[in-house]
Amino acid sequence: MRLRDLIVNNRFFKSIYRTGYPDTARKRVMVVINSLALHLHPVRVPKRAVRVTYTWGLGGLSIFMFVILTITGVFLMFYYVPSVREAYWSVVSLDTSVMMGQFMRNMHRWAAHMMVLMVLLHMTRVFYTGSYKPPRDFNWVIGIVLLVLTMLLSFTGYLLPWDQLAYWAITVGAEMGGSAPFVGKQVNIALLGGFEIGQATLIRWYTLHVIFLPLLLIVVVSMHFWRVRKDGNISTPIYPAEAAPEEVRRRLQGSAPANDEMA
């Protein structure tokens, strides 16, 4: 208690967190409303919606992976050179001579794989809990866009080390795109920035990877989060009127539906 008072009960802390330590119901409301990060949440949520076994926190973990990728990615950008002559060697030097370089590159790589996995699992959780049903129908569509963006981000990053793995994965990918009916040739040229994999390809994918796709993902994720709130927050059970379980029926009998604040 002494220590907590020392940290919490001083002018500086209170200049940041006006409410003080949230130890009363009122302060717990205020702390969420007054904080930029926390106010993504409603003030109060159904108990069952925060149960770990309901959402497994997978949407939150997806965006957390993105945060880690942004931090480690900025570090990598300090050293990485997007030129065909130097890219590979700049990655080698990250691994061998840059302080923490190998660690940051490993972390960036594993977080990228993890993000793809988390997004796929999140989609699967949303599906099997029926959380795509109206009014969340369009947010599911936004989610599909996010899935595509996540994979594109990961794949554009794959080319950047300019090693054999990267080069031939891109070859396979560009051949796939190039086989599109009617527009195959155009798709292929658009992907490669020319007729073969080279400097034009690298700078194109680099730009998409470090600027365009991350910005787009941030915009679309913002729409996603906004809609989660507008669609009535995390889904809770809805039964057909005739077929609600007996226990639910009895509990809801008489008591007006709990329709409290959505602040």
Binding site: P22, A25, R28, V29, V31, V32, L38, H41, P42, V43, R44, V45, P46, K47, R48, V50, V52, G57, G60, L61, F64, M65, I68, M107, W110, A111, M114, T236, P237, I238, Y239, P240, A241, A244, V248, R249, R251, L252, P257, A258, D260
Partner: peptide
Amino acid sequence: VIEDPGEKVHVWPHLVSIELVGALIFTLLL
């Protein structure tokens, strides 16, 4: 339909603490 949102709890600390633990576990794992 019959909607059953059930009992509500405050986001602070009930959800914020879970998010923090999730973030810590995944940071450690990575």
